[in-house]
């Protein structure tokens, strides 16, 4: 479904992605974990072609995004939904119009079906009452849910989530987590979720991947993550302050023995086996 091979990306004189290999299998929900600034959002942006790899390949639905024509890229994007960190709604139109936007502008649905679809999607995120409100009139959490409704409006085969539950109250978070699980079990949508919420990661993730130093440091099921004795995984899942993922302010390795950054990908297990 989604394959990233040896992806390098340099931003601001820093190798944000340094030979990232990642495969997302059809119908799975993959959770990407990692500390702030490790390039989780950058990884998602590569998958939709908002950024292109300096080196390496990104394939989505079998299309190499680095070589795709504009039409091919459009076709790929049509099949992908993307939830941005803050919803990214247009503020001069209502929530309902925002959700209708991708359908209207690309003429995916006949006019009379659009309203139905909008109501359906807003219902899914329990936001039907806000359909006629403007984004500035609703809370941040509601905007995020509205953004999710918009991402789902085109009924995409792949949905990418950039921190879907950060900054949300526990109830809203659960609405979204439940929705992710429903999409997985009922509609068999392939999903990639970036999150900092470990509990949610265990609940929604078929597999978890830990991003560190521009690569996937470890990948495996929730169970394997919980039982892993890899120091970085242990540190991250327990939220310990000291460990291989910690860096001092200067960017030098922390006091504890530095983890070998180079050939890190400690594959706990391949998703195929664990499923």
């Amino acid at each position: 479904m989604i394959e990233m091979q040896g992806v390098y990306k340099r931003l601001d004189r820093k190798d944000v992605l340094a030979g990232l290999d990642l495969e997302v299998l059809p119908r799975e929900t993959l959770v990407i974990l990692g500390r702030s600034g490790t390039g989780k959002s950058v990884t998602l942006r590569h998958i939709v072609g908002l950024m292109t790899a300096d080196r390496g390949t990104v394939r989505v639905f079998g299309v190499d995004l680095g070589k795709a024509s504009p039409a091919e890229l459009r076709e790929c994007r049509r099949r992908i939904g993307y939830l941005f960190q803050d919803g990214a709604l247009l503020n001069w139109i209502t929530v309902g119009q925002n959700v209708a936007l991708p359908l209207q502008e690309t003429r995916l649905l006949p006019k009379r079906e659009i309203q139905e679809r909008v109501a359906e999607c807003l219902g899914e995120v329990e936001l039907l009452d806000a359909i006629d409100k403007y984004p500035s009139e609703i809370s941040g959490g509601m905007r995020k849910r509205a953004g999710l409704a918009r991402a789902l409006a085109t009924r995409p085969e792949v949905v990418l989530y950039d921190e879907p539950t950060s900054g949300l109250d526990p109830i809203s978070s659960n609405i979204i987590n439940r929705l992710i699980n429903t999409l997985k079990s009922k509609l068999h949508v392939t999903q990639v979720v970036v999150t900092h919420d470990m509990n949610a990661a265990y609940v929604i993730g078929d597999r978890l991947a830990l991003l560190h130093e521009g690569r996937i440091h470890a990948i495996g099921t929730a169970r394997e993550f919980q039982e892993s004795d890899d120091p970085a995984v242990v540190q991250f899942t327990r939220g310990e302050i000291d460990g291989p993922l910690s860096r001092t302010a200067a960017g030098a390795p922390a006091l504890l023995a530095p983890h070998k950054g180079g050939q890190t990908t400690t594959v706990i297990s391949h998703g195929k086996e664990s499923r």
């Binding site: 908002l50 993307y82 941005f84 502008e105 953004g147």
Partner: peptide, 21 residues
């Protein structure tokens, strides 16, 4: 503001051209 709040990116992903729109 739309650029920094990722709204432009959102348009691009929805295949809505910012030039046209």
């Amino acid at each position: 503001t739309m650029r920094v709040t990722e709204e432009i990116d959102a348009l691009e992903i929805m295949s809505i051209s910012p030039v046209r729109f």
